[in-house]
């Protein structure tokens, strides 16, 4: 648990955020000191009836004063923006070797699932020093995945995937909180992130009950939902093959190119007519309403696994 007066910096991002934050605190403190200092000293020096000199105002031109401090504040703020924005841009995409963890939020619990299918509730075990990419969606309302010690927060939306990532740098147990108001037990929607040594993590993972891993669940859905009727390599229907698809750049019929990532695959299932692959007819029906978010995550994992089998990554 956290100490009362300090927050651990337990991820790479935490160090970056605290750096900017410290700079902002210094800028703010100096500005406050200046404003309060001037307010108080003027208030004392020029209190009614004091002996301080008044008389004609010195010839400092108003306009230059105004332009001066306008420009000064503008450049200061522009610098702060540039700094914060470049830190933000630098941390947008997770490194390629990141572990992928799926998060499903619902009123009022966090369900997490590791790539091998191991599931946890209100808990997440991760290895230290290894980037972890979270692919998150919600079953009901908007939640927000907030780990103060990692300085990450990302809203978890129904009907859509959102992503964030972190790389833990400290061993220990850190609170996971829901930061977006989500109803009655919002404040009870808390969990724990346990950061372990890599070898401990491997041991922990293998000790988990044999959950069907996501890709296997996906493979079953692939058949039971009828996807295989067109997309299986043996099928007679002219439909895009899925082997090696994940992560590839796809040429669309209207000339656009898109990367076949989670979002694209999700859209292709729910709104198949939106992005038609070049050379194919728009014949696929929408699966919206037939697949829930968990199914989509499983199918996506299955399609991913197809890519890996062909050595494509």
């Amino acid at each position: 648990m956290n100490a009362i007066f300090a927050l651990p910096e337990a991820s790479t991002q935490a160090v970056r955020v605290d750096g900017i934050l410290a700079a902002l605190v210094i800028v703010s403190a100096l500005t406050l000191a200046l404003v309060f200092g001037l307010l108080v000293s003027f208030a004392i020096r020029y209190r009614r009836g004091s002996k301080a000199k008044r008389g004609r105002l010195p010839e400092i031109v108003n306009r230059e004063f105004e332009v001066g401090w306008t420009a000064a504040t503008f450049f200061l703020f522009a610098f702060l923006f540039w700094w914060a924005a470049s830190a933000d841009v630098g941390a947008l995409t997770a490194p390629a070797n990141a572990l992928e963890v799926h998060v499903l939020a619902k009123q009022w619990m966090w369900k997490t699932q590791h790539a091998n299918g191991a599931r946890e509730i209100d808990e997440l075990h991760v290895p230290v020093g290894r980037p972890v990419r979270l692919v998150m969606t919600s079953q009901d309302v908007i939640h927000s995945f907030f780990v103060p010690a990692f300085r990450i927060k990302q809203d978890v939306l129904p009907g859509r995937n959102t992503e964030t990532w972190f790389q833990a740098t400290k061993l220990g147990v850190f609170p996971l909180l829901c930061a977006e108001y989500c109803g009655t037990n919002h404040s009870a929607m808390r969990g724990r992130i346990t950061v372990m040594r890599e070898e401990d993590y491997a041991r922990w993972l293998s000790a988990q009950p044999e959950g069907d891993d996501l890709a296997h669940v996906g493979a079953k859905l692939f058949v039971s939902q009828g996807c295989s009727g067109c997309h299986a390599s043996s099928s007679a229907v002219h439909a895009p093959k899925l082997e090696g698809l994940y992560g590839r750049t796809v040429q669309l019929s209207d000339g656009r190119q898109v990367r076949a990532d989670d979002a694209y695959i999700r859209d292709s299932m729910l709104q198949p007519k939106r992005d038609i692959v070049a050379g194919f007819d728009p014949i696929m029906p929408s699966f919206a309403g037939l697949l829930d978010d968990g199914d989509i995550q499983s199918l996506t994992a299955f399609i991913r696994s197809l890519g890996q089998e062909h050595g494509h990554d």
Binding site: V17, V27, F81, A84, A85, A87, A91
Partner: peptide, 13 residues
């Protein structure tokens, strides 16, 4: 200003 800086805002919003 803290809330205008994206990385800090992510943490404190």
């Amino acid at each position: 200003l803290f809330l205008a800086s994206i990385p800090v805002d992510v943490h404190v919003t």
